[in-house]
Design a binder for these strands. Structure first.
Lengths: 168, 168
DNA sequence: TATTGTTATACTCTATAACTATA
DNA sequence: TATAGTTATAGAGTATAACAATA
């Protein structure tokens, strides 16, 4: 038995999961609740929604946060390297960087060795904002997720997600 | 120890996960691989991508498949009920139904009891397509996921995703 | 007055082609 | 010639307001 609260009730027949249409009219979800693509999408939207709420004071989207995080760990990389690593297309990365640079969170610097490329670096304000953002994520966002799932299940979940992302 | 292949190597210090920028230049992923929002998004994209590939013969998107599935389990519901259950906004549901109806997979019928609403029903072709789609999903898509994760982990994953989607 | 399906519209994401300046 | 950053653009997905028909 790995389930905690939501245990199967009576016999071996699983309880048919139902969805709610705002009010009482319950619909049968059928195979939908067993379809990983469906539940993972719903879960992902919930997680992003909560991330946005927790991060509201700093006005950082999940994508923006990931850029700051990656830049902090990998200073001196160019736009293509950062974009590729995050799965962002280079053309779409431009306006994203424009936004972060105009907020003075990072700088673009022409590389002396290859004057085609822009070296990206966090500014002091960028580092300070990232530090505050990390705290918000850890204490408000991830903490709630760990509380919901339990620490070991949460860790197992991270592992499975990484496995799907990297090996599927 | 719950990890299978990717075991921690030497001491207690965890191996820093790295990302790859097309070729060899490895970047430090840092806290990104511990951020559920990040990994769940990457995993979700992979899952949808595979779903699309497996479903290519039938030309059904995940969203379209979910509509057919829900209609099969809940015949006689109207557009608002189906859309709300799937988290689709009513205005956006219209063109989606236009597409499925023009392919003769479902029908809109004015309800005799409430002539404002459209009762949705699968056509015979819709039911046949759904049956074929279910087989493709089970044998090609979900089978590969279960093979990757193992049956019990796969089941645990479904449970955790549902928990986040419903309770977070 | 409220609700159903619909239109129009806008904003974000994502995707591709092509330009420029460098190499 | 190839690559980095950029522009323009097009397509999905998602969001809100408002209208006609009906309740």
């Amino acid at each position: 038995m790995t389930t905690s609260k939501t245990t199967v009730q009576e016999s071996a027949k699983p309880v048919e999961p139902v969805g709610f249409d705002e009010e009482g009219a319950a619909l049968q979800m059928g195979e939908l609740s067993e379809l990983l693509g469906y539940v993972i999408k719903r879960a992902q939207l919930k997680v992003f929604d909560d991330f946005l709420r927790c991060m509201a004071p700093l006005q950082l989207s999940p994508a923006q946060f990931s850029v700051l995080l990656l830049l902090d760990k990998n200073p001196g990389r160019n736009q293509t390297e950062i974009a590729n690593t995050l799965g962002i297309l280079r053309p779409n990365f431009v306006s994203m960087l424009d936004g972060l640079e105009s907020r003075d969170l990072l700088t673009r610097m022409r590389s002396p060795s290859d004057r085609r490329s822009h070296v990206l670096m966090l500014t002091d304000k960028g580092r300070a904002t990232l530090a505050r953002a990390k705290k918000l994520v850890a204490t408000r966002h991830e903490a709630r997720l760990i509380e919901l799932l339990g620490p070991s299940e949460h860790k197992a979940l991270l592992g499975m997600m990484a496995k799907i992302a990297n090996e599927f």
